[in-house]
Design a protein around this nucleic acid. Sequence first.
DNA 1: TAATGTGAAGGGGTTCACAGCC
DNA 2: GGCTGTGAACCCCTTCACATTA
Lengths: 264, 264
Amino acid sequence: MAAQRGQRGGVGGDTPPAPTAAEITTPIPRVADVPAARERARAVPEAAVARLAVYLRVLSAMQEQGAVTVSSEELSAAAGVNSAKLRKDLSYIGSYGTRGVGYEVTVLIEEIERILGLTRKHSVAVVGIGNLGHALANYGGFPGRGFPVSALFDVDPDLVGVPVGGIAVHHIDDIPRVCSEREVSIGVIATPPPAAQTVCDRLVEAGVQCILNFAPVVLQVPDHVEVRKVDLAVELQVLSFHVARRADDAAATGGRQVNGMVVS
Amino acid sequence: MAAQRGQRGGVGGDTPPAPTAAEITTPIPRVADVPAARERARAVPEAAVARLAVYLRVLSAMQEQGAVTVSSEELSAAAGVNSAKLRKDLSYIGSYGTRGVGYEVTVLIEEIERILGLTRKHSVAVVGIGNLGHALANYGGFPGRGFPVSALFDVDPDLVGVPVGGIAVHHIDDIPRVCSEREVSIGVIATPPPAAQTVCDRLVEAGVQCILNFAPVVLQVPDHVEVRKVDLAVELQVLSFHVARRADDAAATGGRQVNGMVVS
DNA sequence: TAATGTGAAGGGGTTCACAGCC
DNA sequence: GGCTGTGAACCCCTTCACATTA
């Protein structure tokens, strides 16, 4: 068992991990025709992967508005990064731009989707149908599609059998069976903290290799399981830190305050 | 207006930002007695701040179980990081350990709380009382206390006046007035994407300087406003990327698959 | 001419390894 | 002897700046 790496806790902010490339054993190609682009995927930095997802969303919005071409300048502005970073990120997945012109929107969308593995459906199981679990289940076919919620679990016998967002809730004892049957590839943990590790163990037992953890707990998982964490308390505390820093600066420089916080 | 930096979006994962230290104008101490530790706070790396919040949670749990002292080895294991990183993180806030012994739990808790600004209450406003907003409002005095939810907002006239988690919902037009009255320091955006920027602008107008954004939108804010993002779609797509990478490795090395994913 | 793609420089953060102190 | 605190090496990522190409 190894503790999850990083924190990406990042609900947003957080500071991410960077799964050591060294962990990945050298591949010994045996099957013919592994596309070269896939080979390259291995080299995309974790930080860039997260941004590719953002670019993809921006590109989809642009496409809906009829855009055919974008320059790195336009796209980067819309995504909130600088253009050099955008170009570097795109260069990790290949050369799909035209010098002097820009990128074709549809081409970029296709390539990013391919690299992110979005050409395939990823069934999601949500465990813990409290307030948050309810909200997650009702996203109904998670953000951006491609992530159908196909199983719900809870310990509460009163909840078992009740449909939430169109799907019946199962008991957590059935995690292994149901997850295997429905080929769940991503488990979402939205339980109270004390239950999180147990639930996690069952998901792993069921063959789930990716976990999105909303419980404020550091999960212990085998090396082959990928965990990402969304930690509300951490997010708020990081913001709190910034408020405090500003207050200190104000105390030191004599700035004005509004809402207990420093202005300018 | 500047686009938010980084993405910490990371719901967890994601890869965070790192608000350039260069942005912070050099402080010119004018008020006497600014504690030295506060001076140092400015130097704590963003990544370390997020981890300090995690250490704090682990320490609190240890304290409840009666622990008086911890070594860096114990604490780091519980927090899922290596011990050198933990010690380095703690060194940013001062030297509160005893060589040959370890750290006093209560001392560490106090110091981390102080650095994170948790000795002060931070009122939270939640905007957008849909599924997610509901869940957030019902956390009732947010995770870990110190973050009382003191205002709720929505556009829907049918929701205005209705109490959620014990607090009446206001119309978003009242954001400036109510946020000022209640000294809101953190705004949480849980609206649909199209409304997010408008809501953000009003929060900024109301003097809110920290925003936690759950809407899948890149917010444009003035430089003095701190934004952290929790982006579910990005988190799922990053996990999807890892599933895809594994599948590629398997195709290349001839591994077995379970639930459409590669084992070992 | 205009904008991509990228080597190289620069900066942050992580890890190592050991000096310092109890 | 044991564990903290930290300089220094290392590594990843970001940023710069320009050669390259349509």
